[in-house]
């Protein structure tokens, strides 16, 4: 029987996060930032500055370019968001995986970069090993529109949003320094009857934990699902009441957190802790309101880093994006 790796108790409740958790803005002026990874060993935070087509790292309070030159694509019909590189994940100290979303479906890759040390010149967008693409076959259309990546020692996983009839989570097996073919792995829409696998992380026990975003026009349809990482079997599937889950992460204390973008009403978006409700379901506890949050990762010291798209006045250019840091303790 599947046991849910959400901590059972809510005893710490909201006292952990006091009003002092305003969050410190550590970077601003970002353009639709949509991915975060924390470098092992160094603890340096990397961010995909998506509409700027680049990956930056946080060095002494400012953004240093690490990878540049992705093209951009448009998401949404109004509001519209330019997006380029999205999810990030480290496989080793210098090995960074970047998920494409700035190209047409079927021409998008997981790109594996060997990132240079801080201070070195930035890499070009093609200075990488490409994993993919997911070409069309007789029965399924070309896939792409990657959102988030997650990695175990054995495989890389990426959530895909090109094919709304299937909602693919794709996988590439890792053997040493080489990558197997990127292949469609879990048809999450068939498994859950809800659209759009977006958030993905690995549970402390090694399951794939996926946030199913659902239809952006349908409120409160976000699901929390668990799959066996090896065979893709659905283990757990519960409603959360959240609108549009964009990120999931386990805190060092073992709590599971989710970000809700809340497309239809961003004032409802924010950071939530997903507690076990004691009946096998999920109770989402709001920790903090956030303006269009897209990605998060816990730093080595236990702080939580979150990227937000933020809001700009009509007609203004993008550039309201921020990287936020919440104090350790979550």
């Amino acid at each position: 029987m599947f046991r849910l790796p959400l901590t059972a108790t809510v005893i710490f409740a909201l006292s952990i996060v006091s009003a002092t958790q305003a969050g410190e803005i550590v970077l601003d002026g970002l353009k639709n930032p949509s991915g975060i990874a924390v470098q092992p060993e160094t603890g340096v935070v990397f961010v995909s500055d998506s509409a700027a087509g680049r990956i930056v790292r946080l060095v002494e309070g400012s953004a240093e370019e690490v990878i540049t030159g992705s093209s951009g694509d448009t998401y949404g019909k109004g509001p519209k968001y330019t997006i380029g590189p999205m999810g990030l994940a480290f496989l080793a100290e210098n090995r960074l995986v970047v998920a494409d979303s700035g190209f047409p479906d079927g021409e998008e890759y997981l790109r594996v970069f060997e990132v240079p040390p801080a201070g070195a010149a930035a890499l070009g967008y093609d200075d990488c090993t490409k994993v993919g693409p997911l070409a069309a076959t007789d029965s399924v259309k070309a896939e792409g529109n990657f959102y988030a990546v997650a990695a175990t020692e054995a495989a890389l996983y990426v959530t895909c949003n090109g094919d709304d009839t299937k909602g693919w989570i794709s996988k590439s097996d890792i053997t040493g320094a080489s990558f197997g073919e990127l292949a469609r792995f879990i048809a999450s829409k068939e498994a859950t009857e809800v659209d759009a696998p977006v958030a993905i992380t690995i549970s402390p026990r090694g399951e794939l934990v996926v946030g199913q975003m659902g239809e952006i026009t349908v409120p409160s349809d976000g699901l929390l699902t668990f799959y066996n990482a090896r065979d893709g079997k659905l283990l757990y599937n519960q409603p959360t009441g959240l609108h549009d889950i964009t990120a999931l992460a386990y805190s060092p204390r073992g709590h599971l957190y989710a970000l809700d973008f809340a497309w239809n009403d961003p004032s409802q978006g924010g950071l939530f802790r997903l507690d076990n409700d004691g009946e096998g379901g999920v109770n989402a506890v709001k920790i903090k309101s956030l303006d269009k949050p897209t990605a998060m990762a816990f730093g080595s010291e236990g702080a939580l880093y979150i990227t937000l798209i933020g809001s700009v006045e009509e007609g203004q250019e993008v550039g309201a994006g921020q990287l936020l840091r919440l104090k350790p303790g979550l």
Partner: peptide, 15 residues
């Protein structure tokens, strides 16, 4: 990190 073992049984039905 692994204190998650305290998780508990899932009651799938009767929700």
């Amino acid at each position: 990190m692994r204190s998650i073992g305290r998780s508990f049984l899932l009651v799938v039905l009767a929700l």
